[in-house]
Design a binder for these strands. Structure first.
Lengths: 319, 319
DNA sequence: GTAGCTATCCAAAACGTTTTGGAAAACGCC
DNA sequence: GGCGTTTTCCAAAACGTTTTGGATAGCTAC
């Protein structure tokens, strides 16, 4: 050991990997598409994952891809060549082909998020319970006295957008409120579309206008706030003000004026759960021994290897 | 080939790596410290790097580390074991030990940023010319008629903070203005400190107060704007307004009210230059053949393997 | 047809570890 | 001291590629 130290010797990773048939490396495969809204959240994750890997002595390989074909080809190559022992798939689309691909290849993997298959238990996953987050938010607004609660969403072509919307519907039922289609605007992305939607909301007859607006994401909430301010409306919880809430707790949320009440994505907990679960799946793959239990505060067990994380309400001045 | 396709065969990466003594993998080693301000910028980079790697058929390994010792140990291991062919070091500190370490190990590497060694040409680097960015900004403000231009900075314990400040000083000279120590506030990080600094600026005698405030980062600019608004001052370029500028063009900059005039970090260009340079160094390492020229719009050649990128002014309504 | 050269082919070596398995050593017991 | 068992030791095999180099085949020119 002394001589090794002196010679600055480190065992060759390639030779080790070859003989042990194991790389101690996992891949992080986000979507990397043009979808800027989801992108900003997944950027947050990389760093936390990298730090989390230290605990398990894993290295983190980040795969980029410009298109759907490229990501699949990439995944095939990375998994097929044995470059990694496991894969974390993020930013899943409703009809994402990656899950099927990975099941076919037979490499250990964990998905962050759910495909459209709402209650899918066929693959290991961790997801933030968006429906629960929105439910908690709507309930909070209801308790504050709001009865006309509008909902603003991005297009329903992502699973999380759907889950969050379902949360809105569920909590309306829980609160004994009727869903009013005129208070729901989905498919919004560009600021202009948000502005148009907000304008429509406040062209409703007097007593039918919303007193609170729940946005499905922080960036929608941001544009909602500006749209309201442009109309000369005040944002906040006070009398004559319109309450606005977001979802994600992106870095800017606290710096808006007024600071945004929102639902915080539990990034650290999510990453920890993803890693714990992936390591479990990888171990189980080689020696079918006893699998350690995965448990964390706020973690709901959906199935054998499926977990949901409760997000947290962050109350600020916008509601 | 048909049979390989049919059997879903992919060559073993480990065996290849072993024989070729080459991994086609590079490491990205950011600081990953607690430094939240720099962190947000480096998160931006990972994704772009991952995409850029595709061009060169490289994989990207992201190393995490919780402390200075850990990052060094990590770097030693990754480089020593031959896990990667080259390393991109980011978020460099003035007295960063990583450069010396990598030089000693003798692995190809590229640094994003400069150590305190202001004109260091002893290792390959790419940096954004912060001084040039601030110079352009001050010159712009001068041309708009501003003569009392204040400067707000984070602590001078990072190289980029120093460079940017030097840019401020240089452009004052260029514009024929005297530096007024009362208009410079450095060492700021927390919102309260920024507020205090702003308050001091506007407790100056009438004609000596600043008409423009150049902040060394977007987050400082954000707190500057709020501090001004709390004092009842209007932010913008108009009459009786205080102009405020930032640096980085973080995602929220465009969404502030008023939208922030700032200096945009050329992320894509930076990543492209880093990769081009690293690939060059790696190739040169093995076969000392002809090295292709690295050239990009806005790229200034500082030395044989040292490049500076001109950042770009983004003019919005805050100035 | 043959000499001299180049192109093709393929079995064997090499890459640097870990695993394997047989031999030697150590141990425990009667 | 001898037998059976366990532990230690170490040379050789294995991991799955790419490289090597000697042999064979293919050309060209006389």
């Amino acid at each position: 050991m002394a001589i090794a130290e002196e010679l600055n010797y480190y065992p060759s990773a390639a030779a080790r990997n070859l003989q042990r048939r194991k790389t101690n490396t996992i891949a992080f495969a986000p979507w990397m598409g043009d979808h800027s809204s989801s992108r900003s959240f997944f950027k947050e994750i990389v760093g936390v994952l990298a730090l989390g890997c230290l605990k398990y002595d894993l290295s983190l390989l980040v795969t980029g891809a410009n298109s759907a074909e490229e990501i699949n080809e990439n995944l095939r190559e990375v998994a097929g060549s044995g470059r990694v022992d496991g894969i974390i798939v993020a930013d899943i689309k409703p009809d994402d082909a990656r899950v099927a691909l990975l099941l076919e290849i037979g490499i250990p993997f964990v998905v962050f998020g759910r495909t459209l298959d709402y209650t899918s238990l066929s693959y290991p996953l961790v997801d933030v319970d968006g429906a629960a987050g929105i439910r908690a938010m709507v309930q909070y607004l209801y308790n504050k006295g709001h009865r006309r609660i509008a909902y603003i969403s991005s297009p329903f072509n992502t699973t999380y957008a759907l889950h969050r919307y379902h949360g809105y519907q569920e909590s309306l039922v829980n609160c004994g409120l009727e869903e009013d289609a005129r208070l729901v605007a989905a498919g919004l992305e560009e600021p202009e579309n948000v502005r148009a939607a907000i304008n429509r909301l406040f062209e409703l007859p007097e007593g039918e206008q919303p007193s609170a607006i729940v946005a499905a994401s922080d960036s929608l909430a941001l544009n909602t706030i500006y749209s309201l301010q442009e109309r000369g409306l005040m944002v906040g919880q006070g009398l004559g003000q319109v309450a606005v809430t977001g979802f994600d707790d992106l870095p800017f949320a606290a710096f808006l004026r007024p600071p945004l009440t929102t639902v915080r994505q539990p990034i650290e907990a999510t990453c920890a759960a993803l890693l714990d679960l992936l390591v479990l799946v990888m171990r189980q793959e080689q020696e079918d021994g006893t699998l350690p239990e995965i448990s964390q505060p706020g973690l709901v067990k959906l199935g054998e290897k499926q977990f949901l994380l409760e997000p947290e309400l962050v109350l600020r001045e916008s509601a």
